[in-house]
Every structure is written in structure tokens, then in C-alpha cells.
Design a protein around this nucleic acid. Structure first.
Length: 736
DNA sequence: AGCACGCCGACT
DNA sequence: GTCGGCGTGCTC
């Protein structure tokens, strides 16, 4: 008797390979759903894949077809909303779907092994336990009584909350379970909840109340810009909105934060105020196991709030009700390799698809966002006042470096201001955007300059280590004592970096306690936290650092911020440099005088009358943004135009040139709407030994750009030179 | 991306 | 004679 095997279906599988196509496999008898993880044979190796479609037939000759090896049918498949979002992004950012899909998953789900989470439990009272009373428990079983009381109050308690009650909770809980009062449910691990009572919300000021009311009054998708200076209480608005939106339902919220170590702080604040809303964090500091757990808690709907960086914009959230993007102007939302998405823009698309509101918060919104708020596309919510009573805005002044003689890079006025702060036992902060001792090593005889051989950059002098370093590629060498060009032994470190400024300050103020904060001084894992701690403990008088210090922390006793060198950003060929500088200086100003002590900001510049500083002195973001927008409109730059960049690099510049020239011809043929400029070399013409150039495409709409790229990119992939050099497409590029 | 195949130079 | 350089091409 002949047994006919059951007919096999065809699965379209997306794989983590840089090929923009799907692969067909026989389902192997597995009952697989779309979105499921599968393991497939691929050439000589095994690959993890995601099923993106099913069908009865395949275009691929049946001799070529292989069957899947395994399907993880026990795991919940990727839901269709998240899947559709990733498909949209893969399309929009010109990136292979399989790579986009797989990159969005926690690392453990990219392996060909089944991913198991550690079992954890949530506890609740049994009917018997509910019927009982605490007095039935012996007095001396103190921990059991505490646990019982907590369970009565909270209903269900996750085990992560229990150490708060007692370190000996395990034994006591066991006792309660044995007596039949408590039942345990197995849950996914990783959720932290709290048994502490919610910290009561502070009263809101008028602006905050108005913002909340307007947000509450809208329904479905609606984008808001929450514009408020540092200290105006944006976080409070977020928290009360979360409470309003999530308290009496089972909805979920996505909260995006920039890629800095501020996530734990925000998390702690949220947790103390919203202890009843289970929250998970998703950021790069998590271990693999924890990341998987938290992701699954979001996917299963157990976690109600997800606080995370860029990548978490792709986290499956079946009951998404609202999205918050904090510090929306922050550049770290833009992925700068692989799929070059902008998490803020993706969040906007996500909110739109999910028909939920989204709030973008910032003191210095990106001009794109500001423009959208001006044209009415986004609702504008303004927080005018600082929420903390009595605190006032710092006085901002410029020091004209043309008119004074600098002493090792410092003006007399700034030195005097520092001296005053030391006398008053107040703290100061000096910003300088260069680490190292000096940015240039110069031969005074022949004007030779120490340069990197692999990059078009100067080598930075690090005097303490007696090294010359390239800050772009990591190349390092001993400091040369003699000019390699003319033999002169008189080489001068020229210009100032953090190390040199630290040295100068130590000489000017021998008794002051000075601390440098840059990538070099915070290499150790806990170093930055230790320094910030010391600042709070008043163990430091003067901080010298790079923009690392601009974000986040409040220093109540800090009353002076000095900005030493900014002028290079004023005349950068990157049209966004000024926007970034303004945001940075606004943020820096927020560091000064947050308590009841008035703060002062002093900026050393050769262009004190520059319109950027005029606006900054008045704390007038609006005026600056509007003037910048006018310039952008005249120049037809974003947000009045849309850009895409084709970057290419190779050891040989001629390769890059040939490729981009061909691409240019193609692009001009393919679109009469999109303006494609001749290839341009970036500031850093050579980086890590690679010669670089790019092609800029400019269109009136996203659609025009998309239509061009949809045709151009496949043709570029087929170009004979395409495999001989490295090239990428950057849609809506932020930096050039 | 991997991993094969493939066709030319200096080595035990 | 063969070890190995990385160019070319394919993976359902």
C-alpha cells in the first residue's frame, strides 16, 4: 500500500542576509504561522528566519526547494502590526526586510536555539487565604504577616517586588503556600514592580494643566509637541498623562529616551510615581537574558510601560495606547549604521498606524518638529514657566575674544567669574568640545602638522600619556620630539583641549578641586557616576568637560557655566551644525542655577553679535528657530525639502568616483523631480584608510525621493562596482 | 554576510 | 608538485 505524504505548503522566509529577497521553503509538516521563527538550511549553514508569508506554490524550481528544519511553534509569532511597521521601515530606509526584522529582535531570538526565559512567579491569595485574617497568623511569623498584608493590599505580587518586604520572603512565602493561603502563577521573568505606595503627584501649574487637558480632549492619532525649557516639568506631564491613559485599562505605553545613561533615572522616577503600572526598560546596558525577558513582557502585554532607547521603537506592544519621545531633538535617535532609521520618525509612523496619540518633548525641538508644530500638523503645547518656584533662568553673556587677551585660552572675565565662585564656595562648569591636551602638534619652523595616516585629521596631543592620538580611527603613537619634515626640535602643542584646560585651571587656582570629565577620564564603568556623586557631595569646585556633561544631571550648587570654544560650529558646512549648537548651549545653560541661586553662563566667542548668541541671551528658542527656518526655506533645505544620501567608500578614490558618477547619471535619468548633485567629499575625506564621497539627492516630497530610490537602489546593487566598494543609502540623513 | 569554487605565485 | 592569495558567484 502506498502512503501519500501530506501535501506541504510553501513558506516565504526572511533571513538575516544582505540580500533583498525572500527564500521559499517547504513547511516540513510544521504547522507554522506567519511571524514565527524557523531554522532553515541555507547553503552550507543553518540560519534563523522569520516566516513572512505562506502559499501553495513557489516560483523556485522544486528541485531547489528545501524544507525548514525547525519551527518554534510554541513561541508567539511576531504580530502583524510590528511586522508591518518593520516592513514599512525596510522599504522606506532601503534595507533588506530580513535584516530589518531580525535586527529588531533581542539577540537570543536571533540564535538557532530555542530561547528560554527563567521561570518566575507571581503570588496571590487563594480563596482560603482571602477568607482568612491576618490575626490567624502567629505574631512571631512577622514576614508571613507582612507578605499576607501586602497581598491583601495589592492582590497580585510579582516576586521581584518581594525583596522590598524582606530578604527572607522566599521561606515565608513557601510557608504561606504550604498552609494553602497563597497560590503561585508562573510568569515571565524580568518584570519589576514595586509594593511601595505611589509618591503623590505634585500640583501642576497652569501650563502643565492646560497641556494635559488638551491632550485628553483628543482622540485617536494625534501628534503633540511638548515644548518646555529645562525644569519646566515635562516629565511631570508625561507621568500624569501615563496615569490618565493607562490607570483604568490594560493599555501599554512606549516611552523613548535618548541613548545616554539617563534611562535608569527616568525609570526610577516613573516607578516611584506609577508603581501599579509594571514597567520594563530596554536599552543597550541590559544583558541578553534580561533584554529577552523584558521584550517578552512587552510582547505579552504584561509590561504596561516600556522605557527604552531607539531600538525599542520596534518592540511588539499589542495594546499600545500612547507614545512619548523625550528629548525628541536628540541625534541619538538616528541609527548611524545598518538600517539608518530615525526612531522619532518611526515612532510617529507607529502612532499613526496604531491610531494613538504621540508626544514629542523638548526644550529645543528639531526644526522639522518645530515646523510641523507651526503649520498645525502637530498640536503645540508650551510650558512657559519653570515648575520649581523661585528658580530663575541664568543670565547668558558673551565674551568677545577679539577684544581681550586670552590666558591659555581663558579670558580675564571668565577667570574672574571662576574666582568669585570659588570664594562663594559655589561650583563652576567649563565646557570645551575637545578632549586631549591640544588638538594640533605644530612645527614652528616648517609648519608641519602631525596628521593621521589613515584619516584626514590631525593627531591630538595627549600629554599625560605622552601619546599622539587620532580621535577618529583610534590610531596612536608616541609624541614625536623632532619634526619629521625638517628636523626642528621645537614642536608646539597648539590649541586647547580638556587636559590642557584642567592644567591651566590648576595653575590659576592651586587650591581648587578640579575634575575633568571626558571620554578619557570616564573610561572606567562607574567613573562618571562617581564623579557626579562627588559633585553632589560638594567635593568638586570646577568641572571641566566635553558635552558629556550637557545632559541630565542637576547640580544645585552650580552657578557658573563657561563655554570655551564653539566658533567652529558656527560656520560648519553642515547646515544643521548651528541648530545642534543652539540646542547644546540651551541645554548647557540649563545646568546653571537650578535651585534658588541665580546662574550665569559665559560664552567665549569671536562673534558675540551672531544671531545665535543674540537669541540665546534672551533664552529665545522661538526667535532662533524661526530665523533658522527662514534660512532653510531660502536654501530649500529640510524641513522644506527632503534628502537622501548615497555614501560610498573604498581604498581607492577612483572606485568611489566611478561608482558615484554612474549613480549620478542613473539618478538623473530616473527622476526629473529629484535634484541630484555632483558627488561631494565630506569634511573627513579619508577615514580609517577609506576614501569617501557622497551623492546628495533632494526632493520636494518624501514620495519623490522614495520613487527614485525604489528604482535606483536595485540598479546600484546590480552595478559591477557595487561589490568592490562599501556603499549605503541614508534617507533623511542627519549628518554629512 | 558566509562559504564555496577557481585559477595563478612561492614554498616543504 | 601543493598551500594559499582573494576575485566571483550563489544561497530557496
Amino acid at each position: 500500500m502506498i502512503i501519500t505524504p501530506p501535501p506541504m505548503g510553501i513558506l516565504q522566509v526572511a533571513l538575516d542576509v544582505p540580500i533583498d529577497s525572500l527564500f521559499d521553503y517547504l513547511d516540513g509538516g510544521f504547522d507554522v504561522a506567519v511571524g514565527q521563527r524557523v531554522v532553515v538550511p541555507f547553503g552550507r549553514r543553518r540560519q534563523i528566519g522569520i516566516v513572512v508569508g505562506k502559499s501553495a506554490v513557489s516560483e523556485v524550481p522544486s528541485a531547489k526547494l528545501k524544507a525548514i528544519e525547525t519551527a518554534f511553534v510554541d513561541e508567539p509569532p511576531l504580530d502583524s502590526d510590528t511586522f508591518a511597521l518593520l516592513r514599512f521601515c525596510a522599504d522606506y530606509y532601503q534595507y533588506p526586510l530580513g535584516q530589518a526584522l531580525l535586527a529588531s529582535l533581542p539577540g537570543r531570538l536571533r540564535q538557532t536555539e530555542p530561547a528560554v526565559s527563567r521561570k518566575q512567579y507571581a503570588f496571590r491569595l487563594s480563596p482560603e487565604g482571602l477568607a482568612a485574617e491576618i490575626e490567624q497568623l502567629p505574631r512571631r511569623k512577622l514576614i508571613q504577616r507582612k507578605l499576607y498584608a501586602a497581598l491583601r493590599e495589592h492582590g497580585v505580587l510579582h516576586e521581584s517586588a518581594l525583596p522590598e518586604i524582606s530578604s527572607g520572603w522566599r521561606g515565608a512565602m513557601q510557608g504561606l503556600q504550604e498552609s494553602g493561603w497563597v497560590e503561585a502563577d508562573e510568569v515571565l521573568a524580568g518584570l519589576s514592580a514595586s509594593v511601595s505606595a505611589a509618591v503623590p503627584p505634585p500640583p501642576l501649574n497652569e501650563d502643565q494643566t492646560a497641556a494635559l487637558q488638551r491632550m485628553q480632549a483628543s482622540e485617536g492619532f494625534k501628534a503633540w509637541l511638548l515644548h518646555g525649557i529645562t525644569g519646566s516639568g515635562k516629565t511631570e506631564v508625561y507621568m500624569q498623562w501615563l496615569q490618565l491613559m493607562l490607570a483604568d485599562n490594560d493599555g501599554q505605553a512606549l516611552v523613548l529616551v535618548p541613548e545616554i545613561n539617563l534611562t535608569p533615572q527616568l525609570e526610577a522616577r516613573f516607578r516611584s510615581r506609577l508603581p501599579h503600572l509594571p514597567m520594563v526598560a530596554l536599552h543597550s546596558n541590559l544583558g541578553e537574558a534580561e533584554r529577552l525577558q523584558n521584550w517578552r513582557l512587552a510582547q505579552s502585554g504584561i509590561a504596561r510601560i516600556v522605557v527604552g532607547t531607539r531600538l525599542s521603537v520596534f518592540t511588539p506592544l499589542p495594546r499600545l495606547r500612547l507614545v512619548i519621545v523625550d528629548e525628541e531633538h536628540d541625534g541619538s535617535y538616528k541609527q548611524q549604521d545598518s538600517m539608518r532609521y530615525h526612531a522619532r520618525d518611526v515612532a510617529m509612523v507607529r502612532a499613526q498606524r496604531a491610531k494613538v496619540p504621540i508626544v514629542l518633548g523638548s526644550a529645543t525641538p528639531s526644526l522639522e518638529t518645530w515646523h510641523n508644530a507651526q503649520t498645525g500638523k502637530y498640536g503645540l503645547l508650551t510650558l512657559q514657566n519653570r515648575a520649581v518656584a523661585k528658580s530663575q533662568l541664568p543670565r547668558i553673556g558673551c565674551i568677545d575674544t577679539n577684544r581681550v587677551e586670552l590666558q591659555d585660552g581663558l579670558s580675564p572675565a571668565l577667570i574672574e567669574a571662576l574666582r568669585q565662585r570659588l570664594q562663594r564656595k559655589e561650583q563652576s562648569l567649563l565646557f570645551i568640545n575637545r578632549r586631549g591636551y591640544s588638538p594640533v602638534l605644530l612645527c614652528n619652523a616648517c609648519h608641519w602638522i602631525a596628521s593621521c595616516t589613515r584619516c584626514s585629521s590631525r593627531l591630538v596631543v595627549h600629554l599625560r600619556q605622552s601619546r599622539l592620538r587620532c580621535h577618529h580611527c583610534g590610531h596612536e603613537q608616541k609624541i614625536v620630539r623632532q619634526c619629521p619634515s625638517c628636523g626642528n626640535a621645537d614642536l608646539h602643542p597648539t590649541g586647547h583641549g580638556t587636559q590642557r584646560l584642567e592644567e591651566t585651571l590648576a595653575r590659576l587656582f592651586p587650591t581648587a578641586r578640579i575634575q575633568r570629565v571626558d571620554r578619557d577620564s570616564t573610561r572606567r564603568k562607574e567613573a562618571l557616576a562617581d564623579i557626579l556623586q562627588a559633585v553632589h557631595a560638594d567635593e568638586i569646585d570646577i568641572l571641566v568637560g566635553t558635552q558629556m556633561l550637557a545632559k541630565g544631571h542637576d547640580f544645585p550648587n552650580l552657578t557658573l557655566v563657561g563655554v570655551v570654544d564653539t566658533d567652529s560650529a558656527l560656520f560648519s558646512p553642515d547646515f544643521r551644525a548651528a541648530e545642534r549648537l543652539f540646542a547644546q548651549l540651551m541645554q548647557v545653560s540649563g545646568r546653571a542655577g537650578r535651585a534658588d541661586k541665580p546662574g550665569e553662563v559665559l560664552i567665549q566667542t569671536s562673534f558675540p553679535e551672531h544671531n545665535l548668541f543674540n537669541a540665546l541671551r534672551k533664552h529665545d528658542y522661538v526667535a532662533y528657530a524661526d530665523s533658522q527656518l527662514q534660512e532653510r526655506q531660502l536654501a530649500q533645505f529640510p524641513p522644506y525639502a527632503f534628502l537622501a544620501l548615497l555614501r560610498a567608500e573604498a581604498n581607492q578614490y577612483s572606485l568611489v568616483q566611478d561608482f558615484l558618477n554612474d549613480a549620478l547619471v542613473l539618478a538623473r535619468q530616473l527622476s526629473e523631480h529629484v535634484l541630484t548633485y555632483d558627488p561631494v567629499r565630506p569634511q573627513m575625506e579619508k577615514l580609517k584608510g577609506m576614501e569617501r564621497a557622497y551623492l546628495l539627492m533632494q526632493g520636494e516630497s518624501r514620495l519623490q525621493i522614495q520613487q527614485l530610490l525604489r528604482q535606483l537602489v536595485p540598479q546600484l546593487r546590480a552595478h559591477p562596482l557595487a561589490s568592490k566598494l562599501r556603499w549605503t543609502v541614508d534617507v533623511d540623513p542627519l549628518e554629512f
